[in-house]
């Protein structure tokens, strides 16, 4: 029994350590982006309650922007669903790529399903960078501490800043909006240790906007699947050649 309570205490400690991630640079930048989102929601005619509920229930900034965009245009429910779900397909490989790192040997699937809701780009970058340094049995608690705190804090920020930001000059609002993409560019490149990630990074950046001109509804999907697969093949060719060369020298 003492062993069990010892484990519980360890989980709590790692949960709290995860919570401390709320003061990390990625979390602060996301908060600035959500201040920008609350202004966008207000301009689009959403109420404060709707904007907060949307942040809690969707927890993916691009999906929230897209949903508002289709709602403002008066699209039928099925069309909103299609647009949002297309933009959210990326969640599947993002969540899948974190699972082998995050789960412990006996982590219940139900807990992973629940925690997956808190995985979005910022917490994906955070998890990619930090989970390696956390003992495997504490990674779920650590991620839960960070992810849940980040979501609740940003929902609160949307509620508080709703109506306040509209008085900001456009330069400030523009700077808030630009914060998110440039942060992703810098942090994903800085955390890329494997060459395959760097190749996929470059292909995604180039293909995303290019394909948007050609296939506006499926651009992100094509850029991800196409660019990611090409990156994987280039990297596999590179690894095989390295292996052959090492074999020849040995």
């Amino acid at each position: 029994m003492t062993g069990d309570s010892e484990i519980q205490r360890h989980h709590l400690v790692w949960f709290l350590r995860g919570m401390r991630g709320i003061s990390s640079l990625p979390a602060l930048i996301l908060m600035a982006s959500y201040v920008g989102f609350s202004a966008f929601a207000l301009q689009s005619g959403l109420t404060r309650g709707e904007a907060v509920f949307m942040t809690l229930s969707i927890w993916a900034l691009p999906a929230q922007m897209i949903l508002i965009g289709t709602m403002v245009g008066g699209a039928p429910l099925a069309a909103s669903f299609a647009a949002v779900t297309l933009s959210s397909i990326r969640m599947m490989p993002m969540v899948a790529s974190i699972m082998p790192q995050m789960r412990g040997e006996r982590t219940p699937v139900a807990i992973l399903l629940f925690l997956s809701h808190f995985l979005a780009i910022t917490s994906w970058v955070f998890a990619t960078q930090r989970l390696e340094g956390v003992p495997r049995e504490n990674r779920v608690a650590y991620f839960a501490g960070f992810g849940i705190t980040l979501t609740l804090t940003n929902a609160a920020i949307v509620g508080v800043s709703y109506g306040v930001v509209s008085s900001f000059p456009p330069v400030i609002a523009g700077a808030l909006f630009m914060m998110t993409p440039v942060y992703f560019v810098a942090s994903i490149w800085a955390s890329a240790t494997q060459p395959v990630v760097k190749i996929a990074f470059a292909l995604g950046i180039v293909l995303g906007p290019l394909l948007a001109l050609w296939a506006p509804d499926f651009d992100v999907l094509y850029a991800g699947l196409g660019g990611g697969t090409v990156a994987y093949l280039i990297d596999r060719y590179r690894r095989r050649r390295l292996k052959v060369r090492a074999g020849a020298e040995a």
């Binding site: 990326r90 993002m94 790529s97 990630v197 651009d219 992100v220 699947l225």
Partner: peptide, 14 residues
């Protein structure tokens, strides 16, 4: 990992 990274960067560039 490659697909996830390319997807995120496509969203970012857009």
């Amino acid at each position: 990992r490659a697909v996830a990274t390319a997807l995120v960067m496509a969203v970012t560039a857009k």
